[in-house]
Every structure is written in structure tokens, then in C-alpha cells.
Amino acid sequence: MSAADTQSATAGAAIAGTPLIEARNVTRILSGVVPTTLVHNIDLAIRENEFVAITGPSGSGKSSLLYLLGLLDLPTAGEVLVRGLETTHMAEEDRAHARLTMLGFVFQFHFLLPEFTVLENVMLPMRALGQLSASGMRTRGGELLGSLGLGDHMNKRPDQLSGGQRQRVAVARALANEPPVILADEPTGSLDSKASEQVFEVLRDLVRRHGKTVVAVTHDLGMAARMDRQIELIDGAIVADKTINARG
């Protein structure tokens, strides 16, 4: 794991100054009888190894922004670049591949495939990518789950786990193909405070120890305060973007 991380870190350093994800004047309007503006005129750059919180009231467009940054949704205007690469006009096939290799998602609800075991769920993105051997995938999946304290639950089904455990499985799955970025939409929103704290620590460790970048939407201002940077949205626009180095 660390070898690959060093490699990706050097790759990032080689194009130093290029943001990991960049939104340029991004607007997303939902067409309909009454068109809804989800976000508008967003300019934003997420850099390597940042720990970013997106905050704001309910309905302010936090999720919408995250989907746009994660290439799950397409802007109506403007563009999103990943590692300097324009993605908005890519073929859908290529965006899918970018998600598979560069972006890991964690949603508020765990979103695991119910018929598969925890380990199989974590292996899913690896199998879709098809770079490791079957045993290599197993080993990596086992290591990831072990590092997140789920070593004893690998062969259970998602519905046999607690909410916090499932959310950590989702994190493990997001990390499966070693993406540089994890995007999390209220990852602790449905958890009690103890489980929330565990999931938060997992995300923090990804940034602090493994050089990842984490962008997390959260309601919890206390939690946001413990992150490096807070972006506040109101009515689909960024109203504040504060970087306070909260390391420690």
C-alpha cells in the first residue's frame, strides 16, 4: 500500500501546482417545469493531501457539489478537471474509468451490495478494474478491512453488521483501487456519536498517515472544525472557504 502511495505522491509532486480536482465556474441546473439551480458559479480547487469539509444548511447544494466533483453528475455550465484533465466533455466510459481508479465514494447510507459478503463488496472495484489476481484482490481486501478493524467480519453479509461497521466497509471499498481522493457525503450522518467518531478517525488517518485527500460533506460543525479546510455553501453558492490548519 505504501509503495503505491509514494508513487502517486511523486506523480502528484511532478505536476506540482496542479490541483487534484478543480471546478471552474461550475453551474448545475436541473431542467424541469420549474428549473432548479443546484449550484452556481462554483470555482474550487482541491489539492493533494487536503482534508476538506463542505458545510451548509440542508438543501444548500452540498451533495450536488460533491456529485459534480466526483464525476457522478455533469455541470450544465463550466467544467471539472481531475489532475488537470478536463472531464466534462469526456466519453461517459472514460469518466466511469476515472471514478474507478481515481475517486472513492462514501455515501450517508452504506450502499453495499446486500447479496455479497463484506470482502466481496470490497473486492468489487478491484474486479471491475481487473489488475490484480484473484488472490491478490483477496489479500488487499483483507488488509484494508483489517486496517479498519473489520478483520473478523470479512465473510459476513452487510446486514449482519452495525451501521458504523458498514460505513467502514464502504470506506474500505472506496479505497479498493487506491484512489488519491475519497469523497464522502455525510458519512457519519446516520451514525451514533461513538460510531461517528470512529469513522471520522478513519478518514482523518487516510489524510494524515496515507497521504490521501478527503472531501466530506457534514452537518456537524464540530467535526468540520477538526478538518483542514471548510467550504460553506448557501443556496448553491460558496459563501466561505477557510483553511485553518487543524493538524494535531
Partner: peptide, 15 residues
């Protein structure tokens, strides 16, 4: 929902 998960993970339309 599972299809949405798979697609968000980056599985292709073809898959």
C-alpha cells in the same frame, strides 16, 4: 440502487 452503486463505483455501462 445496486445499479447506481455499481455505476458510482465506476463500473462501465457495458458491464
Amino acid at each position: 440502487r445496486d445499479i447506481a452503486i455499481m455505476k458510482s463505483l465506476g463500473l462501465s455501462e457495458y458491464t
